[in-house]
């Protein structure tokens, strides 16, 4: 295939206009990702002797990791957090909202706007608002709601920290689940429901036999996407609890931050980061393959 001179010049120009983006991504994403693998094999620190002359320590950070109860705790907390907020909380409430919003309701736009609102709030503002919601003492909003129903109040973030951050993250992510699942619902042809109704199917039967099976691909993609993005959650939980009390809400992202910038153990922090990178990357590859993304 002989390319004309003009075509080759055009190709070169295209390469040149893409170059700045490529350089930035190489410098601030690709290089750090590779560099973190290197760092994870050193005893690099932020201060002290190790900061001046870091040494290569082989697999020591990784063996330490596997014997570190706090690392397993962070993995466990992250797992419960993802399961509770992304897989169950956001999914169920998002699906319910998406199905309910398919009806021609009077306040449809109002409802969907309100559900989108938490997603628009910056992480710190969201954390800030929930500190007020969940504060100890009888005046906090949640305590008032709970005591209205005659139930005992508590210092919510101290007594049920993990459950509370799951509630908060569910609150924040209903919208994304709703949007994705609405897109999936709209691909199901209305005629199928008509036919089922003719045959006397109940709404529950239609949901189980039609909606769920036909939505399966969308649901699977949603699960992958939301798992990846929930693993990356940092600011929302950090602003609320900073990982406490006693590591009860120390997500893997917060653990990396604390190890690196509070304990100054960059090498060890990098080893934890490499694990998080690998898990996310595998989920990402699964997503790209499952979604058959058109390029």
């Amino acid at each position: 295939m002989a390319k004309t001179l003009q075509e080759r010049r055009a190709e070169r120009q295209l390469m040149i206009v893409l170059l700045p983006s490529l350089l930035l991504l190489l410098a601030f994403v690709i290089y750090p990702a590779i560099y973190s693998v290197y760092l994870s094999f050193t005893n690099e620190a932020l201060t002290g002797a190790a900061a001046r002359a870091p040494r290569f320590v082989g697999w020591r950070n990784y063996t330490r990791l596997f014997n570190d109860a706090k690392f397993w705790n962070a993995l466990f907390v992250t797992f419960v957090f993802v399961l509770g907020s992304a897989i169950i909380g956001q999914f169920v409430l998002g699906l319910v909202s998406a199905i309910a919003l398919r009806r021609r309701l009077v306040f449809r736009t109002l409802f969907s706007s309100i559900i989108l609102l938490p997603n628009a709030a910056p992480e710190v503002v969201a954390g800030f608002m929930w500190i007020s919601m969940l504060a100890g003492g009888d005046h906090a909003t949640l305590s008032r709601i709970v005591s209205f129903f005659g139930l005992p109040t508590a210092d919510w973030l101290q007594v049920f920290p993990l459950a509370m951050i799951i509630v908060v993250n569910t609150w924040r992510g209903i919208a994304t689940a709703m949007i994705l699942l609405t897109a999936g619902l709209s691909t199901i042809p209305q005629e199928i429901y008509e036919a089922a109704r003719m045959d006397g199917a109940t709404p529950a039967q239609m949901f189980r036999r039609i909606t769920l099976p036909l939505m399966m691909p969308t649901i699977l993609l949603y699960m992958l996407i939301s798992t990846v993005s929930t693993i990356a959650v940092f600011g929302l939980v950090y602003a609320l609890t900073r990982g406490g009390p006693g590591g009860a809400t120390e997500l893997i992202s917060i653990y990396i931050y604390n190890q690196s910038f509070t304990a100054y153990q960059l090498g060890y922090g990098a080893a934890v980061a490499v694990i998080a990178l690998l898990v996310s990357l595998m989920l990402g590859i699964a997503y790209v393959r499952a979604a058959k993304v058109e390029i």
Binding site: F28, F234, S260, L283
Partner: peptide, 25 residues
Amino acid sequence: LPFLYAILLIRVLPSTALVVPLYKF
């Protein structure tokens, strides 16, 4: 194609996992 796949995958990398080496760099 490689570039497009790469930017799709870059989006799944959690930024908390990148900040340590990024900070050093």
